[in-house]
Simulated scan of single mutants.
Amino acid sequence: MKIAYSPCPNDTFVFHALAHGLIEGAPPFEVTFADIDVTNHWAAELQGPEVLKISYAALPWVLKDYALIPCGGALGRGCGPLVLTRSGIEGAGDPASLAGKRIAVPSERSTAYLLFRLWAAQNIPGGPGEIVVMPFHEIMPAVRDGRLDAGLVIHEARFTYPSYGLELMADMGSWWESDTGLPIPLGAIIARRSLDRSSLEDWIRRSVEYAWANPEASRDYVLKHAQEMSPDVAQAHIDLYVNEFTRELGEDGYAAVEALLGRAAREGLVPPIDMADLR
């Protein structure tokens, strides 16, 4: 069976056992590493592996052909995307200063972008100017060097942005949680509807449980793909993004997904969906 997920520590930690044949009864899995913006488009175009990690924000475009797998993904609290600006510039702490400005985002079909657009509608009069899509690891250098006015960052950037001379303008996660009381839906695992999803859910859930029970087993695999991330930052990444929602989406998880996609549809940011298709 073919699967695609990112090289980020939370994904390699979660899927280490599945990728290495350590889950009894599971078939061999062939892994493709790809940025989530790539897998979002693969899913929308019915390309790539049968099982993919995508952004929850991309679900409305793919639910006809793919089912949401309620484990293995990333939801949580205190783990939202950040809006960053250069330290010391005029208006750095005032969202209104972003009106008409150039802002980098990692994907237009990402939860980060949806949260940003929903936040901006409340906080940036007239909205931002140009939205520039670029790989997430290029955003902080671009803001630091003055090529962009602000950047929306994800992943380990929340731990490393001060080293780039950047400062936090807004935490999309804190805003979302205070506004809704719900966790943030970030990355979803989806599978072709033709697959035996019950077995797949069982294999993924057992891979999550194996990772927790044997945290050192995946260490080399995680660091090999962690893009020169330090071991401490990689572990902080895992601690933040791998939690009980990774084992089981649960009612709070489904409620978070429904709230995000429902709001985004009302703002015209995603196509409306039948929420029953999520389950």
Rank of each mutant, 00 (worst) to 15 (best):
I190S: 00
E248C: 11
G76A: 10
P272I: 09
G127T: 06
P231M: 04
I69N: 06
G262N: 01
M275W: 00
S230A: 11
E201M: 12
N243K: 10
D274F: 04
R192M: 05
H225M: 12
R206A: 07
F136T: 04
R193V: 02
W175Y: 08
W176E: 08
L195H: 11
R247C: 10
T39E: 03
E216S: 13
D145N: 14
L52W: 01
L261P: 07
A188V: 09
M172W: 02
A226S: 15
P81T: 07
A92Y: 11
A92I: 02
L152H: 07
R144Q: 15
S199L: 12
P135V: 08
L68M: 05
Q235T: 10
M169P: 10
F159D: 07
C8E: 13
T246M: 02
G48H: 02
M275H: 11
F15P: 11
C8S: 11
W119P: 02
C71W: 03
E90G: 03
I189W: 10
L114H: 03
T32V: 14
L186A: 08
L223H: 07
S6W: 06
G78S: 04
I189N: 00
G268R: 06
R144M: 10
E30S: 13
Q235H: 06
S194V: 12
A34L: 07
A58E: 13
A265H: 14
L75F: 10
R102N: 09
T246K: 06
F29Q: 08
A188N: 13
W203L: 03
V62R: 00
F33Y: 15
A256D: 04
D171Y: 10
L68I: 00
S199V: 00
N214S: 07
D179V: 02
F33G: 15
I139D: 03
A188K: 11
G91F: 09
Y5K: 13
G129P: 02
I238M: 11
A276D: 14
D11I: 01
G21K: 05
Y210G: 10
E267F: 04
R117S: 09
V132A: 14
